[in-house]
Amino acid sequence: MEQSIVGLVQNETIKLLRRRRFLVVVLILAILIPIFTYAQYRSVVTAQERMGTTDWRPLLTQQIVDMQNRLASSRLPEEWRDLIKVRIAQQQYYLDHDINPMAPGGPTFARGFMDQAISMFLPMIIVVLAVDLVSSEFSEGTVKLLLTRPVRRWKVLTSKYITLLLFTSLTVLTTLILAYLLSGVVFGYSGWDLPILTGFEVSGGELETSGAFMLPQWQFLLMQYGLGWFVCLVVATVTLMVSVLVRSAAAGMGIMMAALISGTILTQMASSWESSKYLFVVNLQLTDYLNGTLPPIKGMTLPFSLTVLSVWAIAALIIAYATFIRRDVTS
């Protein structure tokens, strides 16, 4: 009598694909990545023209000088001052050890892309995937068919959640592959072994370089996309809850967009509001911990952010299940 979860996941997969949700996601990536590639290419070319050279050392030196000039400005707020000091120390390390941090190539682009995409772009794409997963069944009335079969409600929701996790993972993988393949057309496909500096630690607003070490870029990418994958799973889980609670896809989309955007805004201005670090949207920029960028709020570390995100995901799941199992279906 009890149906296997595999058949249910198959059902959900068919519906998700036939609704063209994943196709939309792949199309967004396939259109935007070339645009970002071109922008990256233009910025490299412009920098080279300004410097009159293709050598990266003068470029890096110039960046350090630029930042030192900004430090000298008296209008610079105190929290920015710390951040820029840390950046200068890092750039200086690259220069001293003869590492080109901007060496172009498909893998480097993929790394930069994840840095930029992890807190906004990828979560938005996951929201597109997840936002009407449950709510569309309610708004189209098909939930009446779904819940009058010999399958318990928790199993129905679980099959949807498993399907969502599968496609979220697939989206992160597709991002890596497309970023590498499409940018490689312009920048070339080499650079997997490029040494990347990581292991920075932040203590009291100071960048500790003592623990820093080199990592081949492919390993770094693996860690980075692993963190990106985790962020996407959390966003998918929270979106599932919204989809259970809100019946209209447009409203769900609005809620998630507002949350993500407010997260970006808060990370830029919340340094004096310390308890905002418990919001999940402030903790999405996990790759910064690898790069040695100062976190937006003091006291945030990688384990801290992972814990906050996990707690939010678990709470969202509990709310989603409790609501879905108990709710009466009305027209």
Binding site: Q3, G7, Q10, I14, R19, G141, R149, P150
Partner: peptide, 29 residues
């Protein structure tokens, strides 16, 4: 042991008739 149509027969419009029936077949076993 129940077959039902509550209000209008709401089906997945983006699937074919057969795919709809296959969805329910997988759920009923």
């Amino acid at each position: 042991q129940v077959g039902c149509i509550v209000e209008n027969p709401e089906l997945y419009k983006f699937l074919t008739g057969r795919e709809n029936l296959e969805q329910f077949a997988r759920m009923s076993g």
